[in-house]
């Protein structure tokens, strides 16, 4: 009995010690903010940068915490299961739509309150240097040999797959998609095992400069700042092609407005800071700050597009 008493007194003392923080929680943030990061790679690197940046402008520690798995599903589920306090935010992306439409999570983007969009990444289509001069040559070859062109993607239902589908739909050709578990596109292109691949430009840039691979087209409306030599699909005459991977911050729906405002303000300051601009050039993403309202509209518009596309591809569940 003595021990039980002792334990309970320790428990009470500790909870008071910890609780004192949350009782005084009139001002946000009064303790550290956890930012769930859904993927590895660039998503994680940029996410960690943003966390550092927010920390400076928010006046509280922001800890990037990775919860990978299921194409983002695991992380979204975690945020959905947390209290809507603003202390749990997520470094989200288009995956909020692909996980829902792919049947991985039973809730859609409306479960989350948008805070701010931070960046976009533009996928590019690349081929081995010397194989195809431009996109028209590629389209002509694929038209002559339907289903013969091997296109490398990260996996079925992945963002690179959806982008490829949009590109080749616009070209009006049928191709053969080859899934790679991980992004090994450059070597597979160099070795000639696949004919074309859609990936992030950072993977191709060095090979493009060395004259080993050629980036044929970007899928954004405007040229990519880090690779200004790559024409966009729209310039090449395929006006409908406009796909980019956006990344931004969101919290669970129902998070107090002033908490969202606080994080939004911190994000805005960081988005225009010289460090973030320098990082965008080095890593190869574009800064695209949107406030909470505009971000919400973008997510909704994107969700509609992705839903329709996945339905057409037979990936909607």
């Amino acid at each position: 009995m003595k021990i039980v008493k002792k334990i309970s007194s320790i428990l009470v003392a500790m909870s008071l010690l910890l609780g004192s923080n949350s009782f005084a929680a009139d001002k946000f943030p009064s303790k550290y903010v956890e930012m769930t990061v859904l993927f590895g790679g660039t998503a994680k690197s940029v996410g960690q940068l943003v966390a550092k940046g927010l920390e400076k402008n928010l006046g509280a520690t922001v800890v990037p915490v990775s919860r990978p798995g299921g194409g983002g599903a695991v992380g979204y589920k975690y945020i959905q299961s947390r209290p809507a306090s603003g202390y749990d935010i997520v470094w989200n992306s288009n995956s909020v739509s692909t996980t829902f439409h792919g049947g991985k999570v039973p809730f859609n983007f409306k479960t989350f309150a948008p805070i701010a969009a931070m960046s976009i990444e533009v996928p590019v289509l690349a081929v081995k240097a010397g194989s195809f001069k431009d996109i028209n040559e590629l389209a002509a070859y694929a038209k002559k040999n339907p289903g013969k062109l091997k296109v490398g993607i990260s996996g079925k239902g992945a963002f690179t797959h959806l982008t490829s589908a949009i590109i080749f739909d616009a070209l009006g050709v049928k191709v053969n998609y080859i899934s790679y578990g991980k992004g090994k596109a450059p070597t597979e292109l160099l070795a000639g095992r696949i004919d074309a691949a859609v990936q992030w430009p950072g993977q191709f840039r060095s090979f493009d400069k060395a004259g080993q691979l050629k980036m044929l087209a970007a899928t954004s409306p405007k040229r990519i700042a880090s690779d200004p030599g790559v024409p966009t699909m729209q310039e090449l005459g395929y006006k409908k092609v406009d796909v980019t991977m956006w990344r931004g911050l969101a919290a669970k729906k129902g998070t107090p407005k002033d908490h969202i405002k606080a994080i939004e303000a911190a994000a805005k300051t960081y988005a225009s800071s010289p460090e973030f601009i320098a990082a965008s050039k080095k890593i190869g993403f574009e800064i695209n700050y949107l406030d909470s309202k505009a971000f919400g509209k973008k997510i909704a518009a994107d969700d509609k597009k992705i839903g329709q596309l996945m339905k057409n591809l037979g990936l909607k569940k």
């Binding site: 990260s154 996996g155 079925k156 899934s179 790679y180 990936l315």
Partner: peptide
């Protein structure tokens, strides 16, 4: 066990 990355 888990998600099959290739076919999603």
């Amino acid at each position: 066990i888990g998600i099959d990355e290739l076919e999603g």
